[in-house]
Amino acid sequence: MYRFLLSPRWLGGTAVALVAIVVCLWLGSWQLSRFEARASSHHGSASTAAGPPVSLDGVLTAASPLVGTDTVGKPVSATGRYDQAHQLLVPDRTLDGRQGYYVLTPLRTADGRAVAVVRGWAPGAPGQAAAPAVPAAPAGEQTVSGRLQAPESSGSNGAVAGGLPTGQLGTISPAALVNLLPYPVYDGWIASDQPAAGLTAVPTVQPQGGDGLSLRAFQNLGYTLEWFVFAAFVVFMWFRLVRREAEAVEDRRLGLA
């Protein structure tokens, strides 16, 4: 009944089906390996968040100057002098259910650039007549250790729109600081692990989209499923066509067709 499978037409069709199955399985396996690589990178970067701080210059290099999902929360250190004249308050920041301000002081490094350092959080209602009194930044050369944070955008949690009083900043980002500081700044900012007396350390802030795997990683997983489904569909269609052909052969043998 199945001798027709040895005909040139069916041999060619079977070969094409096998090639399609192999290609689908290979592409699915490749997409799965991409997902596993991204997952390993994500878990690896999360595990380094508890390690010792590394120099900021070693994280934000000339080749990779921007903060990414793999460096958010990474312990870093920077050495320089606080620019007390340009200290800023970032209002409408909630900590433990209370409203307050981030206290941001630029730390100028030896190369002339500065990194925005959030020295801590101070309580205070937004829009109050007087800004909260905060401790002055220490003078002289300082080495600051903390967690690297991503620049905020206008849609970030806690970001405040314009119209703020002098000395206040709504969004912590190089784009917002460039008009307030007379020197270039690093991408991102540092949440200090040694807040000044009267201030509270701020938590690590994940960029919009959360701290899970990236969307592209889940796209890789979706493509993996698609390619494996395509392979299964080819197998299903081949068996269905074989069965239909076998039924047609049997009908002709019995004189029913």
Rank of each mutant, 00 (worst) to 15 (best):
T14L: 11
A15V: 09
S29F: 09
S29V: 07
S29M: 11
W30S: 01
S40N: 11
S41Q: 13
S45N: 06
A49W: 08
A49Q: 15
A50V: 11
G51E: 12
V67L: 02
G73Q: 02
V76L: 00
R81Y: 07
R81H: 12
A85W: 10
D92W: 06
R93S: 01
T94M: 12
Q99G: 03
G100M: 01
Y102P: 10
L104F: 00
V117S: 00
Q128E: 13
A131H: 05
P132K: 04
P132Y: 02
P151Y: 04
E152R: 14
V160I: 06
A161P: 01
G167N: 07
G167T: 07
V178S: 15
Y186G: 00
D187C: 10
D187P: 10
G188M: 07
I190M: 04
D193E: 12
P203L: 05
P203S: 04
T204R: 15
Q206D: 11
Q208K: 14
G209W: 06
G212V: 09
F218S: 14
L221T: 11
L221K: 12
F228Q: 14
V229P: 04
F236L: 12
M237A: 13
R240K: 15
L241A: 13
R244Q: 15
V249E: 13
R253D: 09
L256I: 06
A257W: 08
